[in-house]
Simulated scan of single mutants.
Amino acid sequence: MTIKEKQQETVDAFAFMEDWEQKYEYIIDLGKELKGLPEDRKTDDNLIKGCQSKVWIDAEFKEGKLYFNADSDGILPKGIISLLVSIYSGHTTQEILDSDFKFIEEIGLQEFLSPSRANGLMAMTKQIKFYAVAFQLKS
């Protein structure tokens, strides 16, 4: 499945939910499904700067694709990073760099978040793009 298809699947899933309480629960459930990071990967290098909660993201490049794993000490940020990981993990660096984050606007996520959490969301998306650039330069 392409990044665009995964994004559209997310937009469609959010469209079926009637209110933000349901959407909030959905995001929290996504966080509960996230594998998380082992303690030795929760380093300052993997910590996303700009998030209200602690959010770590780690990337591994294998067989031409970038794989993400993440964790957070907050239940909502963990759900948000889980959503991003599910969309962008397993794709080439070029696919990630060619993609956009318009689906976030389409589901209205930024409007639902407090300004500090919205800043954290933007920091998460920037970190995913940063890893794509960094691994593209290495390959």
Rank of each mutant, 00 (worst) to 15 (best):
Q94V: 14
E105V: 00
I28R: 08
G90S: 06
A15F: 12
M122P: 00
K78F: 05
K6C: 04
I3S: 12
S89R: 00
T10R: 03
G50S: 01
I107A: 14
N119S: 08
L66W: 10
N69T: 02
D58R: 01
L109W: 01
Q52W: 00
Y88G: 05
I75R: 14
M122L: 11
I48F: 04
G31F: 11
E60L: 09
D98Y: 09
E105G: 11
D100Q: 10
Y26H: 15
K49T: 02
D98G: 09
D44Y: 00
L34M: 12
S72D: 12
I96W: 06
G36Q: 07
E9K: 13
Q7N: 09
I28N: 09
S86R: 07
H91A: 10
G64K: 07
G36L: 11
L84H: 01
G108K: 02
K32D: 15
Q110G: 15
D29G: 15
K23V: 12
K126A: 15
G64T: 05
K49V: 03
L84P: 06
K49G: 04
L83H: 05
Q8E: 15
D58S: 14
A15C: 07
I57G: 04
D45F: 08
D73Q: 04
D29K: 14
N119T: 03
T10S: 12
L76Y: 14
V85A: 00
D71W: 01
L109Q: 02
E39I: 15
I75P: 07
I3P: 13
V85E: 08
I96M: 07
F101H: 07
T10N: 08
P115Y: 01
L66G: 13
S116T: 11
R117I: 14
D45R: 05
F103Y: 12
V11R: 03
K78E: 11
G90Y: 00
W56K: 08
N46E: 03
